[in-house]
């Protein structure tokens, strides 16, 4: 199967799962924004999704996307290290056109994983998981209030912001790289895709960061806007 036993095929898998995850995080960031405008509407979305069959199918597809992306990430990195060989250069310089993110995708991904573990414990484990188990799930506002409330915000906020930064770097390279990997790129589109990648990564970052800061101010400090 060429998606596993050829280098280009493996990159296609990386690219398709990566783009899927980009769409997911974008959608996620937009949905969170609802909570800024109306906690009631947010609560309605949470209830609507809950543990319905379509939400469960969505979660399963998403989990599979993450799993494949992460497994391939380790697999490719292992192969690439082997291809590089054990002898390293004494002096090496990164050319100006090579972005730092592009050379540190695994590390950036791992930071995102660490953030995700915290995030899943704070939200998924209180909301969808209990519902699957037939217990009473926490509401959206309740979970937000716990994570960003007076007791926890000083752990939550820095961890979230760090995760968002890592995600910014990851997408700033990953976005255009994904198009290159599936062959949708050329001399004219390369600079354009690089700009779109920056823009998209920044949009996702700003949305998430503003949301986290807003929730902290609201739930930990009782600020009402």
């Amino acid at each position: 199967m060429w998606l596993t036993n050829s280098s280009v095929g493996r990159k296609v898998v990386m690219s398709v799962t990566g783009l899927f995850l980009v769409l997911f995080v974008t959608f996620h960031a937009l949905m969170n924004a609802v909570a800024i405008f109306s906690l009631k509407a947010y609560e309605a979305i949470c209830e609507f999704l809950g543990a319905n069959w379509y939400a469960l199918v969505g979660t399963a597809v998403l989990a599979a996307g993450f799993a494949i992306h992460i497994i391939y990430a380790f697999w490719l990195t292992y192969q690439n290290r082997k291809a590089r060989g054990s002898d390293s250069y004494d002096v090496s310089a990164r050319p100006k056109t090579v972005s730092w993110a592009s050379q540190n995708m695994l590390v950036l991904g791992l930071i995102v994983v660490c953030f995700m573990i915290v995030h899943l414990i704070q939200f998924w484990a209180k909301m969808q998981l209990p519902e699957i188990m037939g217990e009473r799930p926490a509401g959206g506002e309740e979970a937000l209030g716990a994570a960003f409330g007076p007791e926890w915000w000083y752990y939550t906020l820095p961890i979230y912001l760090l995760g968002f930064c890592a995600l910014w770097f990851h997408i700033s390279h990953g976005f255009w790289s994904a198009f290159q990997s599936i062959g949708v790129n050329g001399n004219n589109w390369l600079p354009r895709l690089k700009k779109i990648a920056m823009g998209w990564a920044t949009l996702v970052f700003v949305l998430f960061a503003v949301e986290a800061i807003y929730f902290t101010l609201h739930f930990a400090f009782g600020t009402n806007f």
């Binding site: 280098s7 050319p95 056109t97 972005s99 592009s102 790129n185 390369l190």
Partner: peptide, 24 residues
């Protein structure tokens, strides 16, 4: 040889300025 992760160091260092678009 390894899997390309599109860092672009190759094209930056190529003495003949072979472009990354070839990889696409």
């Amino acid at each position: 040889f390894g899997n390309c992760t599109n860092t672009g160091a190759c094209a930056a260092e190529c003495p003949k300025n072979i472009k990354l678009s070839n990889i696409a």
